[in-house]
């Protein structure tokens, strides 16, 4: 009863609980929160105290003293640390309701990877409830991504969405408000970063942090040869000498570094096309594939997939927020017409 009353003063939230970033969309207000899914925890007399969450905690990543650990509670799109995820969600939900008088108790729609198990779904549901949600609904990520990208999911036309997130790449074929085929490849932005770190260690004998690798990827990373070559200056610790050294990387090298994870994504897309029913495959061939998620921001990734598949590939507008926005729209659709878009 009290929860319901409190709910009247809270908003409906759509949460994209991602490996790399958590986004919250509120109806009529748009994206209200976009922060890294990182929590810094201080060990104090055997007790765990949350030191910082989000942007602040990310700044601590890899720079913490012994008693503080900055961790990412989600791995490969699913919850790896239940308690910390709950704390993080609690913090974010409170942050969204900063001006509220009461403790918020919103209805929450959370996007889950399409191949997540019942246990993983339950973990997400429980941690959202533990964070103060009144009601939790789950939606499959590619569905939300498709709605957020502006695809007409209710039509009897097949459309293919590739959502390249931080931990996973979700590939799905959608028709008539349902997921016809879906696959989840455990390759995403994190694997790109890892590949860059490994490449630099192998070829320059230097170690760079994940944050540096991410910066390299964002600034000069590209997925397809033939576009202009860019360069970046990087500092890393030289393994042989043990002192920090500066060196220059160019986009061709990064392309080489990213070959393996990119091949994983392309392979996933191809096998999805192979598995799709012929009618839907012809629809997809005619209109094309839509890319969403942070990975879609990698330069020329659409050209790579277009080249490999021979289909038109389109990057959705504002791909980072597609899932969260789509979740919000899905909620409205469900309220309005009681369409079942839920995964469970």
């Amino acid at each position: 009863m009290i929860k319901r009353l409190r709910g009247m003063f809270s908003n409906d939230l759509s949460i994209d609980l991602g490996t790399a970033n958590t986004l919250i969309y509120v109806r009529d207000r748009g994206i209200v929160l976009d922060e890294p899914s990182v929590v810094a925890i201080r060990q104090h007399n055997g007790q765990k105290i949350v030191e910082a969450v989000g942007v602040e905690a990310k700044r601590m990543l890899g720079r913490t003293p012994g008693n503080i650990t900055a961790i990412r509670p989600l791995k490969d799109g699913v919850i790896a640390d239940f308690q910390v995820t709950e704390k993080m969600l609690q913090h974010f939900i409170k942050k969204v309701h900063e001006a509220a008088w009461f403790q918020p108790s919103p209805r929450v729609l959370v996007c889950v990877p399409c191949l997540s198990t019942e246990v993983e779904k339950r973990a997400i549901r429980e941690s959202a409830l533990g964070a103060g949600a009144r009601e939790v609904r789950l939606i499959e990520e590619p569905m939300a991504a498709a709605i957020g990208a502006g695809l007409n999911v209710s039509e009897a036309t097949g459309s293919m969405v590739v959502d390249i997130g931080g931990g996973t790449t979700e590939i799905a074929i959608i028709s008539l408000n349902g997921v016809v085929y879906s696959d989840s490849v455990r390759v995403g932005g994190d694997r790109f970063d890892e590949a860059i770190v490994n490449y630099v260690r192998r070829n320059y004998g230097s170690v760079i942090g994940e944050a540096t690798a991410e910066r390299i990827k964002q600034e000069i990373g590209c997925a397809f040869a033939g576009s202009e070559t860019r360069e970046i200056d990087v500092r890393g610790r030289n393994l042989a000498e043990g002192v920090p050294r500066s060196f220059t990387l160019n986009s061709d090298e990064i392309l080489e570094a990213l070959q393996e994870p990119l091949a994983g994504i392309v392979q996933g897309v191809k096998s999805a096309l192979e598995q799709s029913p012929p009618e839907l495959a012809s629809d997809i061939a005619e209109s094309g594939i839509v890319l969403t998620g942070g990975g879609a921001l990698l330069r020329d990734i659409e050209r790579l997939i277009a080249e490999e598949t021979g289909l038109p590939v389109i990057v959705a507008e504002d791909p980072l927020t597609c899932v969260a926005r789509g979740g919000g729209k899905a909620m409205e659709m469900m309220d309005g017409r009681s369409i079942d878009l839920l995964s469970s």
Binding site: A149, G150, L151, N152, V290, V313, I314, E317
Partner: peptide, 13 residues
């Protein structure tokens, strides 16, 4: 043409 997102994509390309 297909829905809006595709049109924008085609135009961009």
């Amino acid at each position: 043409l297909p829905s809006g997102v595709f049109i924008v994509g085609y135009l961009k390309a």
